[in-house]
Write a protein that binds this DNA or RNA. Structure first.
Length: 581
RNA sequence: GACUCCGUAGCUCAGCUGGAUAGAGCGACGGUUUCCUAAACCGUAGGCCGCGUGUUCGAAUCACGCCGGGGUCACCA
């Protein structure tokens, strides 16, 4: 149920009616016709721009069109009144029964209320986290993980068939560094002193890897050269780190459907095949790049390379796919990986990357555009930095000073629910402040608490009603006499509930899960406001002493709000609480 | 220099892909509790939506150009 699309259908029908009668010309493009809630509540419940949008193509003044449409809209039983205002807005006031019916519909549909068919069952791949398996996950990864997971849940709610995927960067030089670092820890475990040279990973998180290596290999690798153990240790260490990463994701409530390995692409011919596809389109050539202007490159030297003609698909310069030593650049396996995703039949791809990868966006879009023949859109969401604070003071993260903050640190201190919600209180391309103390504060300054508190209040009043002998099951509440919900404040609450499907739609269309968090805050605010009005006006209390019928109707409204809060929190991956403690 | 994101109240930020008199929180000031959780609510003050041009019935929103800030920029991922 979506009131806005329902009303839009009504408007469109009225326009078509006028066309059939020759009042309006045929063949009008109606896609620009919208039905929205007016900002000003005094203007009514719904407003449409139909008359203004159609004025020019129809060759009629907007107010004339509006005057012709108004009576047809008013004839609908859902419409209480219609008036034409301003340059040609048609303001519609809905009958109270519409809002009462909405509350009933929410109770009947439960947390499925607001689901949309936007995705139409199409397959979308959301790739996120994709951290190198060289160390523990830190705060920087948390935001991307939460964002990706919430986006996946949102898209599923909006009717997409979602696959969550993690691309393991285990093919480059970094895992060799990992292996060498782990080898030193292995030597340490064998009683020797490790030589953590410049360029190796100094973190003590590799000590357990060294010990595990000793348990597996004993002393047998001690006197051997790198060529003897590098590949084995690389696999061993990265596999071990991946297990840790999976564990970290799990405590944050994130699970992946597919793990894809970069290393697994090598030696299979997949990289060569993907490049060949591009070559067949004349998008691969040997050439020399110009040095970047305005940037001082001391060691720049012109160099003949194998290049991808990404400029043919919107990039600014062509990009190398092969290094001067003939090996692939990091870009090449990534091309092959995305080609693999296209071949697996996804209708849309989404990559979630750190903002420092912004320069990578155009070339990857160019590659996907070329490899899919323009069929598969790739949306890349860049996640900005998280700035840590403690008691309002910036908290600097430094591996050397031992103030390296891991994902596990954050979740253990703040809890997964709080962490997830807070990470979604900014849109992805804005930096986010995360204050360890404020996120745990129990006040309205803290949006997580604020929303949870609203839910707790709903549960509280439902308990009270239940204790008074009222059936508060959804079925019973849906069957209550909802005509008792007539006060403007109550209708306002229902109006906010009507926004939910619309909001889901917009959020999913733009891949912006943060909108869910903001909406929940507004919804909670409405609930708290209505709740407190009961202080002055006893008739607005949800629980009406001695009047079960009215109480049931009011509880129905509260419960419907709770249902939407639960649905919204579900998309964010946050567990609703029943009581505050 | 190029690309990209950002610029909205004193501060932190929303703004539904063009709508009517631009919103919320914090901070400031003033109120609300014999009453379902005052862990909350209500009110007041506070704006050249960075600047300019264009597109049109209509621009914070779209296009272009400036100004200011962040990020990135071949043979690392």
């Amino acid at each position: 149920m979506n009131l806005f699309t329902d009303l839009r259908s009504l408007v469109v029908a009225a326009v078509q009616d006028l066309q059939a009668q020759g009042v309006l010309p045929g063949g009008l493009d109606l896609t620009a016709v919208t039905v929205d809630p007016p900002r000003e509540a005094g203007h009514g419940d719904m407003a449409t721009n139909a008359a203004m949008v159609l004025a020019k193509p129809a060759g009629m003044p907007p107010r004339a069109i509006a005057e012709a449409l108004a009576p047809r809209l008013a004839a609908d039983p859902r419409v209480a009144s219609v008036d034409v205002a301003g340059p040609g807005f048609i303001n519609i006031r809905l009958a109270p029964s519409v809002w009462q019916g909405l509350v009933r519909a929410v109770l009947e549909q439960g947390t499925g209320y607001g689901r949309s068919t936007l995705g139409q069952g199409r397959k979308v791949n959301v790739e996120f986290v994709s951290a190198n398996p060289t160390g523990p996950m830190h705060v920087g990864h948390v935001r991307g993980a939460v964002f990706g997971d919430a986006l996946a849940r949102l898209l599923a709610f909006a009717g997409w068939d979602v696959t969550r995927e993690y691309y393991i960067n285990d093919g480059g030089a970094q895992v060799d560094v990992l292996a060498r670092s782990a080898y030193e820890r292995y030597r340490e475990a064998c009683g020797l002193s490790p030589e953590i040279r410049e360029g190796l990973y100094p973190g003590d998180y590799l000590i357990p890897v060294g010990e595990a290596l000793k348990a597996k290999y004993g002393d047998s690798l001690l006197d051997k050269g790198e060529q003897y153990w590098l590949a084995d240790i690389r696999d061993f260490a990265s596999a071990m780190k991946m297990e840790e990463i999976k564990g970290d994701l799990a405590i944050l409530g994130v699970t992946m459907d597919v793990y894809s390995s970069e290393k697994a692409l090598y030696g299979t011919g997949k990289i060569e095949a993907a490049i060949q596809v591009l070559r067949d389109m004349d998008l691969i050539y040997e050439g020399t790049l110009e040095p970047p202007k305005g940037k001082t490159n001391d060691d720049w030297e012109p160099r003949q390379q194998t290049l991808f003609r990404s400029t043919a698909h919107g990039d600014d310069v062509d990009r190398p796919v092969q290094k001067s030593d003939g090996g692939w650049t990091y870009f090449a396996p990534d091309i092959a990986y995305h080609y693999d995703k296209v071949q697996r039949g996804f209708d849309a791809l989404i990559d979630i990357l750190g903002a420092d990868h912004g320069g990578y966006v155009k070339r990857m879009k160019a590659a996907v555009s070329a490899l899919s023949g323009g069929r598969v859109p790739l949306d890349i969401k860049l996640i900005q930095l998280v700035k840590l604070y403690k008691n309002g003071e910036p908290f600097k993260m430094s591996k050397r000073a031992g103030t390296f903050v891991t994902l596990r640190d954050v979740v253990e201190q703040a809890g997964a629910d709080v962490t997830r919600f807070v990470m979604l209180t900014r849109k992805n391309d804005a930096t986010l402040d995360f204050d360890f103390d404020k996120v745990l504060e129990q006040s309205k300054d803290n949006p997580v608490f604020y929303v949870q508190y609203a839910n707790a209040r709903i549960n509280s009043v439902m308990r009270k009603a239940r204790d008074a002998g009222i059936d508060v099951s959804d079925a019973a509440l849906a069957a209550a006499d909802l005509t008792k919900l007539a006060h403007p404040a109550e209708i306002g609450m229902a109006r906010q509930l009507a926004e939910w499907p619309r909001l889901v739609d917009v959020a999913a269309r733009n891949n912006e899960p943060h909108r869910i968090a903001f909406y929940l805050y507004e919804l909670a605010s409405d609930l708290h406001g209505l709740w407190n009005r009961g202080n002055d006006d006893l008739s607005l209390r949800f629980f009406q002493e001695g009047d079960h019928a009215t109480t049931a109707a009011k509880i129905a409204l509260a419960r419907a709000t709770g249902v939407v809060i639960a649905a919204g929190l579900g998309i964010l991956g946050v567990t609703p609480v029943e009581e505050m403690r």
